[in-house]
Design a protein around this nucleic acid. Sequence first.
DNA 1: CGATAATATAATAATAATGTGATAAATCTA
DNA 2: TAGATTTATCACATTATTATTATATTATCG
Lengths: 225, 225
Amino acid sequence: MNELKILVVDDEARMRKIVGDFLAAKDYSVVEASNGEEALDRMYEDKNIDLVILDVMMPKMDGWETCREIRKFSKVPIIMLTAKGDETDELLGYDLGIDEYITKPFSPKILVARIDAILRRTNKLNEEDVIEVGKLSINKTSHVVTVDGQEVELSFKEFELLCYFAENKGIALSREKILNSVWNYDYFGDARTIDTHVKKIRSKLGDCGEYIKTIWGMGYKFEVD
Amino acid sequence: MNELKILVVDDEARMRKIVGDFLAAKDYSVVEASNGEEALDRMYEDKNIDLVILDVMMPKMDGWETCREIRKFSKVPIIMLTAKGDETDELLGYDLGIDEYITKPFSPKILVARIDAILRRTNKLNEEDVIEVGKLSINKTSHVVTVDGQEVELSFKEFELLCYFAENKGIALSREKILNSVWNYDYFGDARTIDTHVKKIRSKLGDCGEYIKTIWGMGYKFEVD
DNA sequence: CGATAATATAATAATAATGTGATAAATCTA
DNA sequence: TAGATTTATCACATTATTATTATATTATCG
């Protein structure tokens, strides 16, 4: 979902490894290319590259040339890496529509900070509100629930109730407490209506239905095992 | 048309003059402020500031503080000027939503190149602003909507609403949220008016009408599948 | 093991939300 | 200002959801 793909282009394998590992640790998905042509191939293959990190110094097709080629068909954000702090280089970069310009050597922290800044600007960094429990995933932003990646249709109340359970994982919840939290305060109906909803949620969630445990004489508890 | 307004904030008059003159030469309209408070005043007075250039080192309210204040009410792009090349400073800046970070001394050419880059990114530099979703294309610049290349006539409000949906693709939107975003804050009418607009948009968009999904008990969501 | 109490289930009734078309109000335009 | 267009409101039809009820099942405890 939030797996953003970053293409790292550098002729030095060591460099790609360092950058790639650091990005992977930050939950970015990394694609590598060792030269300009390869970079273009990756771009053509995979239309979902969210950002490109491009080294200037490369044999044959250099960073500028690669950038020019990419710009012919894509507006993907590009970060340029260069050893030289030369001003003319920098100017050239911004003209080509480079988004950032980082001089080697740089700290990985700076790199990630700039990547985040760019992705935030381009709205790729959509901070989603997701609760993951076992095979179950509840996306409060898109209002979508998935079991094992498979989407499950829940009604409004079912969704609310499931969220409440997931947010109180491992806590025994009395029917009264559930009513007070998920239902409006002016609801004075039968608490047994919860049972009906629990039943429906359980059946809709399939395997994950077992996550909602019954606590006899007490209420319910949401838990993985 | 392309008269973009830039606010230059620096306590040194000499600095403001150099930067201001250079920007004026590039057909930018320049507003000056000699300290943080004055900068905020200018921002309040003139809602059409397109970019702020902010010096870190200023007496009383420094650049970071000024930035924080501006961020409380505006997302205007900010370029930070600082004498120190310190990494922690830079990290702090990115956290505050700084768009660029330039260390003094800098050449005016670099400054203008970065300003252009930012304005291009934020679509202030009159390039076309198009949102494409499935077979639907929304051109915010020309105010034209097409389905499968075929133009569709939408009223102003319909267009606004559709843009809002498209810009929040995949996000479940409550009627309240929609009202607050698409209607003026002083509108206190019936939320059901949204339904009517949704109905009209759906019917006008033909096949693409299905992109606007109903989330029962919640609101709407814009999505391709 | 059987009585009892609590929960699960399924069907139905009641409720609430949305879709729709007509109409009124507001806004724009000539 | 009249006419046209847009936007908001309303009333009713439609539909999905939620609550209720009755019954079956299951767990607990003497």
